[in-house]
Amino acid sequence: MAEDFQSPQEAGSQEPSRKDFIILASGAAAAIAAAGGAVPFIRSMQPSLDVEAERFAEIDISEVPEGKVTTFEWQGKPVWVFHRNAEQIALAANPPKPSKDPKSKPDSERALKPEYLIVVGICTHLGCIPLYEGGAKEEWKAWHCPCHGSQYDMSARIIAGPAPQDLEVPPLEYLSDTTVLIGEA
């Protein structure tokens, strides 16, 4: 409403002055220009193209011994390939304790092939790397995090501790029986 605008210089006048208009318009233009100008500066701090090139990794899982975990690197993060034995598969399929993660998925959806569980080995609490114990202390427990004590089961689901989610299953695709492509297509 035009009546709402009143500059102190023109108290009494009901019309916004030419000066008010210019101040508002130039102020708005400067703000938009500043916001636009900030985009390249903020964008320049995003991962650069050479870093982006590491979005994918192709790994060969044939060498992973049964009952053991081998660490591969993807995006600079450790990716674990856990070659599970029959007992471990059974414990993963019927876990004795439930996951704390409300969005937790059953083992059949986490491991495309039951023998191979492939997860990002970074604790979902604050990014530490959990240590493998493979059921040595308690039969269901495969990993514990040394930082704040989160505990993960044979399907790398969060059972106890401060971590909010199960270990992440990265986007992956079996290129052959032994080759896996990790990363979003």
Binding site: I42, Q46, P47, V51, Q75, G76, K77
Partner: peptide, 9 residues
């Protein structure tokens, strides 16, 4: 996080 690190890790 990626913006702060300039990378994934």
């Amino acid at each position: 996080v990626e913006w702060v690190r300039g990378s994934f890790v």
